[in-house]
């Protein structure tokens, strides 16, 4: 990608705030900043929806307090992933969709719903037959989607956009850990099989050791 530079960027006039050198340097190197930005909105849409869906999935792991704790780490880290990359969308001249429904619609990963038929009448979930195994499987597949998404972003930005690449690779590190956690838990829960994730616990819930953005303040 960096060998061919099909778009001339021209120069950005002194004081011109209608263009950004931060975008033009990407264009000069053959990466379309608008295309990247749209991809990032889709990707953080998925982080945001999984943050929501994991909240609900976690509610349905009663009696499996260890699973709940791991799910909590994965849940909070998805919020961290959303917050790490959201500023990048603005730097690339974009914005979050004004309507959250649009944001969810375009998320690059599927809705991670509680895998039960819902009762449309009262909006109640029919959870009588729900098992931890089913919940863990949804969690695992969500992590797998995230791994693919951030690998794509790494591919798009490698050698061309160090800032986005750095974010994507940090997130990818945690998504790969998340997959390993859920592989371990599902293996035992479903198959009685020991399949170690090989990781130590987070210092604090949802530590996001690679991907935490600077917080607005300590209470966030």
């Amino acid at each position: 990608m960096s060998e061919d530079k099909p778009h001339a960027s021209g120069s950005v006039e002194p004081g011109d705030t209608s263009t950004r050198v931060g975008m033009e340097v990407l264009r000069e190197r053959g990466l379309d900043p608008e295309e990247l930005r749209e991809k990032l909105i889709d990707a953080i849409g998925a982080e945001f929806t999984t943050y929501y869906y994991y909240t609900n999935l976690r509610m349905h792991l009663a009696g499996h307090e260890d699973y709940k704790e791991i799910t909590e780490d994965a849940r909070l880290e998805d919020r961290a992933h959303f917050e790490l990359v959201a500023p990048r969308v603005y730097e690339l001249g974009g914005h979050l969709p004004n309507d959250i429904r649009d944001f969810a619609d375009r998320a690059s990963c599927p809705d991670a719903e509680v895998p039960v038929p819902s009762d449309d009448e009262g909006g109640r979930l029919r959870v009588e037959d729900l098992t931890a195994e089913q919940v863990l499987e949804v969690l695992l597949e969500a992590e797998r989607c995230a791994i693919r998404t951030w690998s794509e972003v790494c591919d798009m930005t490698r050698d061309v956009d160090p800032r986005t690449y750095d974010m994507a690779q940090r997130i990818l590190q945690e998504e790969i850990e998340h997959e390993a956690w859920f592989v371990e838990l599902l293996s035992m829960e479903r198959d009685g099989e020991i399949n170690p994730a090989g990781h130590f616990v987070r210092g604090e819930p949802g530590d996001a050791p690679y991907s935490t953005n600077r917080r607005f303040n300590d209470s966030a």
């Binding site: 889709d42 690059s108 990963c109 599927p110 597949e141 797998r144 989607c145 693919r148 794509e152």
Partner: peptide
């Protein structure tokens, strides 16, 4: 091209 590989994103 692909992304989700779950038949969702349309990439």
């Amino acid at each position: 091209p692909a992304d989700c590989q779950q038949g969702w994103c349309t990439t």
